[in-house]
Design a protein around this nucleic acid. Structure first.
Length: 417
RNA sequence: GCGUCGGUGGCGGAGUGGUCAAUCGCACUUGACUGUAAAUCAAGCGGCUUUAUGCCUACGAAGGUUCGAAUCCUUCCCGGCGCA
């Protein structure tokens, strides 16, 4: 009995994209879908009912964070992630592999997992390996066995191995869990990416073995293996082949994650390299990606699921998605703007009610400047609605056979200058 | 009226003879944010330009001392407090 089953409904002609349905023990997910991030067992600033009302189908929490706080056994003893946070739809947990990056190579710097322009290692002669660039004070150290973290909360030391990550994820109880991997920096050299990839593959085998060793959990939770390889075609393809090879007809991974770093310019191409190789009948989750253009590119190149902190983080920081592009609600011009946040949007924040229009830009500008908590709530509702609906609309356009037209018109409007 | 303390950039508040266009905080302006270390972070914030170890104007006002003053002296104006 497999915990996850994936049915493709319609494919995008001449491309890797598809619309489908992913069945889980907590219900179905219509794919492509945007997964809302709720790192610590809550989508920041929102009640679960609000998250559900936005059309969210899945929430992703984080292994490292919940292990530290409140502790995975406490989550288990509260009935698991669903019951603890009052979310009865599907959930996922990330393995903690991203924290190997964010608390390791990226700690104390501005490096993103997306390389832009001159960020890439080939343009930086300084970067020849992992050690040279590592910032002082970083909180994660990687070795063959796993990652040693110092808690960002109290500095205490903790070690994650593949086996430990899976055990914690079993305790948390999401129906989709991830293999423990090493998320690398976009600034890492080819040599380092190759070395890290080998490690990630060995960790994938260990994660899979640890998962299958717990027969009870393996019945209820699906394990997704994570493809790495940075922005290098040969490494990405090697990774996809390796993980696919761990999937005999009767077992193996229940789906795949595509993680790590990319060049902004050809992220979609890189995703396509991988998805051309991964088994077609299992879901593919593009980890940590959620810009509108990237969602189109990811879907077109065969991804079914996306999660990203961007909608909620940007919302809390005052950047708001509109059909005509992003706005920064802090800009002085919005202080007296009595117009809607995003004309035509149907979210709670934008919807007319009480005999009037939705909340105005001027009101949000005020709430943000006044540091009122409701600002983050209203903006998070809007941004999440925007992105969730975008992915749902992309899905519908695949079913309708209008994907290309939809993509062209949406992007032209959103990114026009 | 007498005494006393004080008047610094939008606000609060450092500075008490040179390295001061003036620490810092707030406010303001603009950016950034892609498996959340993030309701965070970064830059700017007197004027001008050839954007510079540049020029000008500035620390209540006016004079003065000094090579040099936000910093010292004198007078005036304004405010707090105390005494009448």
């Amino acid at each position: 009995m497999q915990p996850l089953s994936f049915q493709i409904q319609k494919k995008l002609p001449g491309a890797l994209g598809r619309a489908g349905v992913l069945s889980t023990p907590h219900g179905e997910i219509q794919t492509p879908a945007f997964v809302v991030v709720g790192t610590k067992g809550t989508v920041k600033a929102l009640a679960p009912e609000q998250v559900a009302s936005l059309g969210a189908q899945v929430v992703l929490a984080n292994t490292y964070h919940l292990y530290l706080q409140p502790g995975d056994t406490r989550v288990r003893d509260q009935g698991g992630l669903h019951r603890m946070m009052h979310w009865d739809k599907p959930t996922m947990t990330d393995s903690g592999g991203f924290q190997a990056f964010s608390l390791g190579a990226a700690f104390g710097s501005n490096v993103s997992k997306i390389a832009k322009g001159n960020d890439a290692a080939q343009n930086s002669e300084e970067v020849t390996g992992d050690e040279l660039e590592e910032p002082a004070g970083k909180l994660a150290k990687i070795d063959e066995d796993g990652v040693t973290f110092r808690s960002h909360i109290d500095g205490s030391e903790h070690k994650f191995t593949p086996e430990r990550s899976i055990e914690i994820q079993h305790n948390l109880g999401a129906e989709m869990i991830f293999a423990f991997d090493e998320c690398t920096s976009a600034q890492a050299s080819y040599e380092y990416q190759k070395e890290a990839l080998g490690r990630t593959h060995r960790w994938a085998e260990r994660s899979l073995a640890a998962h299958k060793a717990n027969g009870d959990a393996a019945q209820k939770q699906g394990l997704l293996g994570i493809v790495q390889g940075g922005r290098f075609k040969d490494l990405r393809e090697e990774s996809a082949r390796f993980l696919a090879g761990l999937c005999p007809p009767a077992g193996g991974f229940d789906g795949f994650g595509i993680g790590g770093s990319f060049d902004k310019e050809d992220m979609y191409t890189a995703v396509g390299w991988v998805n051309a190789i991964l088994p077609e009948d299992k879901p593919r989750h593009l980890l940590g990606i959620g810009e509108p253009a990237d969602l189109f590119g990811g879907v077109e190149n065969g991804c079914d699921l996306f999660d990203c902190v961007a909608p909620t983080r940007m919302a809390r920081n005052g950047t708001i998605h509109t059909a005509n592009g992003r706005i920064n609600i802090f800009n002085a011009k919005f202080l007296d703007d009595l117009g809607p946040i995003d004309d035509g949007c149907a979210c709670y924040t934008c919807s007319p009610r009480h005999g009037g229009a939705g909340y105005t830009r001027a009101y949000l500008a005020h709430l943000f400047r006044a540091k009122e908590m409701f600002a983050g709530t209203l903006a998070s509702i809007h941004n999440l609605h925007f992105i969730i609906k975008l992915v749902a609309d992309i899905r519908q356009s695949i079913l309708d056979g209008t994907f290309t037209d939809f993509k062209t018109s949406f992007l032209a409007r959103y990114y026009r200058k």
